[in-house]
Amino acid sequence: KRPMNAFMVWSRGQRRKMALENPKMHNSEISKRLGADWKLLTDAEKRPFIDEAKRLRAVHMKEYPDYK
């Protein structure tokens, strides 16, 4: 299984929150909104998620060195 990218790290928490706030919203609509919201974030706002994704990638490479 591939490590999560920055968007996936960020959206994991946001998806739960949005689903709780909008229980009747379909998952596909939540995904569209999350994508739009992510694009509106500044680089500074994205930085912690980018850093976490880099950390996850490094751990994955160490655990699965032959993964392609």
Rank of each mutant, 00 (worst) to 15 (best):
K1C: 08
K1G: 13
K1W: 08
P3M: 04
M4G: 09
M4K: 03
M4I: 15
M4S: 06
M4Y: 09
N5H: 10
N5W: 03
N5M: 02
N5P: 00
N5S: 13
A6C: 04
A6K: 01
A6F: 01
A6P: 06
F7C: 01
F7K: 01
F7I: 00
M8N: 08
V9C: 08
W10V: 02
W10M: 03
S11M: 06
S11W: 01
S11N: 02
S11A: 14
R12W: 11
R12A: 15
R12D: 15
R12S: 15
R12C: 13
R12Q: 15
G13R: 01
G13E: 15
G13W: 06
G13L: 13
G13P: 00
Q14M: 09
Q14V: 04
Q14Y: 03
Q14K: 04
R16K: 10
R16S: 12
M18K: 01
M18S: 00
M18C: 04
M18A: 03
A19D: 09
A19S: 10
A19Q: 14
L20V: 10
L20S: 12
L20R: 06
L20Q: 15
E21W: 07
E21C: 04
E21K: 00
N22H: 11
N22L: 05
N22C: 06
N22T: 04
K24T: 06
K24G: 11
K24L: 15
M25P: 06
M25W: 07
M25Q: 05
N27S: 12
S28A: 12
E29P: 00
E29L: 06
E29K: 00
E29I: 03
E29C: 00
I30K: 04
I30V: 06
I30S: 00
I30G: 01
I30N: 02
R33G: 03
R33H: 10
R33M: 07
R33P: 04
R33L: 07
L34P: 00
D37L: 08
W38R: 02
W38K: 04
K39S: 08
K39R: 07
L40M: 12
L40R: 13
L40D: 11
L41G: 02
L41I: 00
T42C: 02
T42G: 08
D43W: 07
D43R: 03
A44F: 05
A44K: 08
A44H: 07
A44P: 05
A44W: 06
E45M: 02
E45N: 02
E45G: 03
E45C: 03
E45R: 00
E45H: 03
K46D: 06
K46C: 02
K46Q: 04
R47N: 03
P48D: 02
P48C: 00
P48E: 01
P48W: 02
P48I: 02
F49I: 09
F49N: 03
F49Y: 14
F49E: 05
F49Q: 02
F49M: 05
I50R: 10
I50N: 05
I50E: 15
I50Y: 13
D51P: 00
D51W: 01
D51T: 07
D51M: 09
A53S: 09
A53Y: 01
K54I: 07
K54C: 06
K54W: 03
K54S: 11
K54P: 04
K54F: 12
R55D: 07
R55Y: 04
R55H: 09
R55V: 04
L56H: 05
L56C: 11
R57F: 13
R57H: 08
R57W: 08
A58V: 10
A58W: 04
A58E: 14
V59S: 08
V59H: 10
H60R: 10
H60W: 11
H60G: 14
H60S: 14
H60A: 13
H60C: 09
M61N: 12
M61A: 13
M61E: 15
M61L: 12
K62H: 11
K62W: 05
E63K: 07
E63A: 09
E63S: 07
Y64C: 15
Y64L: 14
P65T: 14
P65Y: 11
P65F: 07
P65C: 12
D66V: 09
D66K: 08
D66W: 04
Y67P: 15
Y67I: 13
Y67Q: 15
Y67R: 13
K68R: 00
